[in-house]
């Protein structure tokens, strides 16, 4: 679905992404993981054209992602960020339906789609009239997800979607999100720094270090056969904190 070949990106003197190739398969969830500053969020933002690469080529479903094509291609990729990025001046309903209204959907179609989204995310209908400031953190992320899914995109990009939530809500939403991704069967790219969250979502884990892919494999293989001392250290550091239930 996404094909990144020989991509690099620097911000001033800081190199965020080293020349990298990355292929994201359609219809499954891929997790980008790594410590802060490893370039995982930058890669995600390169994919939907929020930033342009210094070198290399990015395609989405066979089409080049460029400044010219990005705005229309983005409507086929949902995007969820850590704080939700909800528009505070619009109600929940207006936030979710904004792009559908902007692109001229019929009111009835919007209503039908909204209904299926609130069902999918188990979001209370009566909260649709509320403003983002009146929602809890978990609700905000559900709204952000519904907004990302409104136009029924082919792919869904999520940048630390659960990063700002407290642990209880986070665990609950992890389970729900994984379930939703399975139901939808869409191409999902999720960025996290949490190894156990990564394992929760996918068997395809891309571990990044200094803007380059260090190892790409499943959780089990990361534990069993770390490709480098760095991988061993990264896994070890997180393993010491807690035990994942399914391990």
């Amino acid at each position: 679905m996404f094909n990144l070949s020989d991509i690099s990106k620097s911000f001033g003197r800081l190199r965020a992404v080293a020349p990298t190739d990355l292929h994201i398969s359609a219809g499954r969830t891929t997790v980008l993981i790594g410590p802060s500053g490893c370039g995982k969020s930058t890669l995600l933002r390169l994919m939907n054209g929020l930033i342009a690469p210094d070198t290399g080529r990015i395609t989405f479903d066979g089409e080049d992602v460029t400044a010219a094509t990005a705005p229309s291609l983005r409507r086929r990729m949902g995007y969820v960020i850590q704080q939700g990025g909800l528009f505070p001046h619009l109600t929940t309903r207006q936030n979710i339906t904004l792009m559908a209204r902007h692109t001229g959907w019929a009111a009835a179609d919007i209503e039908t789609r909204l209904q299926s989204l609130t069902d999918l995310t188990r979001f209370p209908r009566d909260a649709l009239a509320r403003y983002p400031a009146e929602l809890s953190g978990g609700q905000r992320q559900r709204v952000s997800l519904m907004r990302a899914l409104m136009l029924d995109p082919d792919a869904l990009l999520l940048d630390e979607p659960l990063g700002a939530l407290d642990p209880m809500v986070r665990y609950e939403l992890q389970t729900e999100l994984a379930e939703i991704f399975r139901t939808l069967g869409k191409t999902v790219v999720l960025v996290t720094h949490d190894l156990f969250e990564a394992a929760h979502f996918s068997k395809d884990i891309v571990l990044l270090r200094d803007g380059a892919v260090e190892q790409r494999t499943s959780m089990q293989m990361l534990l069993a056969e770390p490709a480098s001392p760095f991988v061993e250290k990264f896994v070890g550091a997180q393993r010491g904190l807690t035990q994942a239930p399914e391990l």
Partner: peptide
């Protein structure tokens, strides 16, 4: 908030 600006661009608003 830059996150809001980025969201506006990311959902496909020109």
């Amino acid at each position: 908030d830059p996150g809001i600006l980025e969201s506006a661009a990311a959902i496909g608003l020109e």
